[in-house]
Design a binder for these strands. Structure first.
Length: 490
RNA sequence: GGGCCCGUAGCUCAGGCCGGUAGAGCAGGCGGCUCUUAACCGCAAGGUCAGGGGUUCGAAUCCCCUCGGGCCCGCCA
């Protein structure tokens, strides 16, 4: 990019510093403490006081300057927050003082040595004895008050968004803490965290277009995973019994407020348990995450409101019963494809005529039932035609043992009592292939082979972690919980 | 894929309907100020109005195309 006038001015300062024998990019700054240490020490002082015995070294980014002739204030921000620096010509010498003001700019990374103090107006401060430039910022930071507003720029230049928005930093710290909480919950329940391949010969376990790339070593195309399901179930065949993976999946599709081409999934599989067990386990997880989210973001009304939707117990609705109730029809599952297609058309769906009955039922559910959710809700016992990897329901004909968990506006997760009959699995895969007539739902022959060796009765769940973080932090767009969402290159 | 909206100084935004020398604040430069915290006061500077084409005596403004982005709808379980 072309150098701007402001950058040229800052580069001139770099040159000036170097010619004065000062290194604008020194190697280290040993012994610095977090800014909170100075604030704590200053808490014991009254307005206008300083304590020469409490010396500190801090470092951070210079956010703002307020000059008053022979006194100046500066705000230095580190990971702990913002600290005011108090600069006085009479304490450091006028020549030194003038040189600092001339060479420093907002955005510079700065080290400061000084003593704890409180300004006359009561602001905890570091009364500076010495300043050290640690890294000159050649480009100016975003505007100090409004920060970076342009949505595109906040995503493309996330470092500038983070630099200028404490809320953004807070949100991503909360995300990390929530992921930690998820891990602790599964670990405490005896699950083993595993890592399965991202690169696979066949992308299966969900219906989605994969990203395809090339292995030079194998001289074969490989695909990025679209789900974690099938490798994890193989681990249960191998005897691991309780496993989970927290990792990235990739679907070659659009990015919108609830979809990202690369997204973080949590999948867990649990032998000798069924979907009722998983539902209770999930409710326990969500309850704990919601409590944690409120602790993490005490200042955020949006987070509090988000967490409010996670009040337990979560209501549970039967997919078919609820849909029939909302539509005012009976015996929905007895209806043929043509009739379901017409009903879906009436509901405004434009899915292709060749779509499966399961697709039409899903569309009807999306239209008549999903908008009625005003809090986290379980939907259970879906029609078998919608689901190729779930075990048929033990007592409801034409259904599978499945639940989905919804937050108002989007799906958070999907769980089954897993299908473990190898022959039935093979047949369902083949039906799915025939019905769709495309390669979207890839047939994983080795997975069927693994099932033949015996998969214990089990339950499994997949959770959309980005969406979970959105819900718990009260964030409206998935782009605001992913640090670097995919954007067109420019 | 369809509809609506946005793109003006490094950043935050006016101006656009109704065409007539492109404005402010922050940041930066120069000067002033020993308690400010979006500090303040004065002076000067800073522009490919996303890009291209058209209409016009004259286009940031009206029209068309392209690029990038946002929102809604559709599709993608």
């Amino acid at each position: 990019m072309e150098e701007t006038r402001l950058e040229a001015e800052r580069r001139a300062k770099v040159a000036r510093l170097r010619s004065a024998g000062k290194e604008p990019y020194p190697w280290s700054f040993a012994g610095r403490v977090p800014s909170s240490a100075v604030r704590s020490a200053a808490a014991a002082l009254g307005p206008g006081e300083s304590d020469p015995k409490r010396a500190f070294r801090v470092a951070g980014r210079l956010k703002a300057f307020r000059e008053h002739g022979k006194t100046a204030f500066a705000d230095l921000e580190d990971a702990d927050g913002s600290l005011q620096l108090l600069l006085r010509a009479d304490l450091v010498g006028e020549e030194e003082y003038r040189a600092w003001l001339a060479d420093l700019d907002p955005g510079d990374i700065l080290g400061a040595d000084g003593v704890a103090a409180v300004s006359r107006r009561g602001e905890p401060s570091l009364e500076v004895r010495s300043l050290t430039l640690l890294a000159k910022a050649v480009s100016p930071p975003p505007e100090k008050y409004h920060g970076l507003q342009d949505v595109e720029e906040r995503i493309r230049s996330r470092y500038l968004d983070l630099m200028s928005s404490p809320e953004t930093r807070q949100r991503f710290r909360a995300r990390a803490a929530l992921l930690g909480e998820i891990r602790r919950y599964f670990d405490a329940a005896g699950f083993t965290e595993v890592e399965t391949p991202v690169l696979l010969p066949v992308a299966s376990g969900a219906a989605a277009a994969p990203f395809v790339t090339r292995s030079h070593y194998l001289d074969e195309d490989v695909r990025l995973r679209i789900a974690l399901e099938l490798p994890l179930k193989r681990l249960l065949v191998g005897g691991l019994e309780k496993v989970y993976e927290l990792g990235r999946s990739f679907r070659n599709e659009d990015l919108d407020s609830t979809h990202s081409p690369e997204f973080t999934e949590l999948e867990a599989y649990w032998a000798y348990a069924d979907y009722h067990d998983m539902r209770r386990f999930t409710e326990g997880l969500f309850e704990r995450l919601a409590a944690r989210a409120v602790d993490l973001l005490p200042e955020s009304p949006a987070a509090r409101q988000g967490a409010e939707a996670f009040r337990t117990p979560f209501p549970t609705v039967d997919f078919v019963d609820e849909l029939e109730k909302r539509m005012g029809v009976r015996d929905l599952l007895a209806k043929g494809r043509d009739e379901l297609r017409e009903l879906a058309r009436e509901a405004g769906s434009t899915v292709p005529d060749r779509s499966s009955t399961g697709t039409f039922l899903d569309k009807l559910f999306e239209h008549y039932v999903e908008p009625t959710f005003d809090r986290v809700t379980f939907v259970v016992d879906h029609p078998a035609v919608t689901t190729p990897l779930a075990k048929r329901h033990r007592s409801k004909p034409g259904r599978v043992e499945r639940f989905e968990v919804f937050y108002p506006g989007y799906e958070l997760g999907n769980a089954y009592t897993e299908l473990n009959d190898a022959d039935e699995q093979e047949q369902r895969f083949r039906e799915q292939l025939g019905e769709r007539g495309d390669d979207v739902y890839a047939y994983d022959a080795d997975f069927v082979r693994a099932l033949r060796y015996g998969l214990p009765p089990c339950t499994g769940i997949g959770l959309g972690v980005d969406r979970l973080v959105m819900a718990l932090t009260g964030t409206a767009s998935i782009k605001d919980v992913i640090l670097f969402p995919l954007v067109r290159s420019r």
